[in-house]
């Protein structure tokens, strides 16, 4: 564990807590893409299959349970909670995320570290996570103004993977047989997808203005 990875995990956890705060405090999920939340739940379920078979550390196990539990709770909330689901921007959240799932699964079958079931699923979860935020970014551009908590949520979500890239660079130089090119390339793509959001988020912070994404 290094400072980049720990900070990355804490940033990821913070993004989930901000999203839970938004939904719980405002009883609203306006501006949040249900499709992105479903993709994240799938990412965690596909990646953390080894939760009960390979014990790595208490930290690792606890965080996996938190990520799986929170992502499923958010999907449940947005689908079933009568007050929350009323605020869901159904007509704006129309990105065809099933194509992302199919595409990532096909890619995982072709490009993986070992053609074994757990490895293919792990690669699938890495590729899927890289594109999971697309429905959310599309929704933000369509919905124009973004409320503060939603903006902070998306910012933290993007920032965590950027910190993971620093973690991979650090491990590459400090660990002899470290090779994580699948996660690294996918992480670069994932972070690059946030580039224009980061730019407008920075502008809104610098000018102390409301976050506006050009539609």
């Amino acid at each position: 564990m290094n400072v980049f990875r720990l900070t990355g995990d804490m940033t990821h956890l913070a993004s989930i807590l901000v999203l839970l705060l938004k939904i719980y405090a405002t009883k609203s999920c306006s501006g949040i893409s249900l499709k992105t939340q479903e993709l994240y739940a799938l990412v965690f379920l596909a990646r953390y299959l080894n939760l009960f078979t390979d014990f790595i550390s208490v930290y690792n196990t606890v965080m996996k349970l938190v990520f799986i539990g929170s992502s499923l709770a958010i999907v449940w909330c947005m689908r079933m909670h009568k007050m929350v689901k009323r605020s869901y921007d159904q007509e704006l959240d129309t990105f065809r995320h099933y194509f992302l799932i199919a595409g990532c699964f096909l890619l995982a079958l072709l490009v993986n570290e070992k053609f074994m079931f757990p490895e293919v699923l792990w690669a699938f979860s890495i590729y899927l996570e890289a594109v999971s935020t697309i429905p959310q970014l599309v929704l933000l551009q369509r919905s124009g103004n973004v409320d503060n908590l939603t903006g902070q949520y998306v910012f933290l979500l993007g920032a965590y993977r950027a910190l993971y890239i620093l973690n991979w660079i650090y491990r590459y130089f400090t660990e002899p047989h470290f090779s994580r090119w699948i996660a690294c390339v996918a992480g670069l793509v994932q972070t690059a997808l946030y580039a224009d959001f980061f730019y407008y988020y920075f502008l809104s912070w610098k000018n102390n203005a409301k976050l506006q994404l050009p539609s």
Binding site: N50, N60, M63, K64, F67, R180
Partner: peptide, 10 residues
Amino acid sequence: GSAEDSKDEL
């Protein structure tokens, strides 16, 4: 190999 230890990250 890399496949085993790649599971130490979240």
